[in-house]
Amino acid sequence: MPRYFTQDHEWIDVEGDTGTVGITDYAQSQLGDITFVELPAEGSTVAKGDSVSVVDSVKAASDVYTPVSGTVSDTNAALADEPELVNSDAELGGWLFRITLSDPAELAGLMDRAAYDAFVAEL
């Protein structure tokens, strides 16, 4: 299952026309203790680059932008009680939402793991 990354520190796993989106481990380490995650409404239609979710840390709130366009099909219910999952397991159990891609060609503009790691190393 291919995984792609954005310059805004989101990741997306793609299987068929469904993507699972989260923030990267680097992102969570920068944000610090996460206390609340505002998730998008299931069924909402979103466009690549829209702010669809907000991650609250002790200090501040940060927007999460969807890496692709599509329809939100599912959100991670576990985050309601355990927002800290985004800290402890950002790139697996701390996923944020699933999306049905409307334009898979958008994936071509994203980075692979090697490119993202190189991007972060430059920050």
């Binding site: 805004d8 520190h9 920068q30 840390s57 940060s62 999460v64």
Partner: peptide, 15 residues
């Protein structure tokens, strides 16, 4: 995502 928590984080030692 936007990292507006530490917008002035300058601990990384790039140029």
């Amino acid at each position: 995502m936007s990292d507006d928590v530490f917008p002035d984080d300058v601990s990384a030692d790039d140029d």
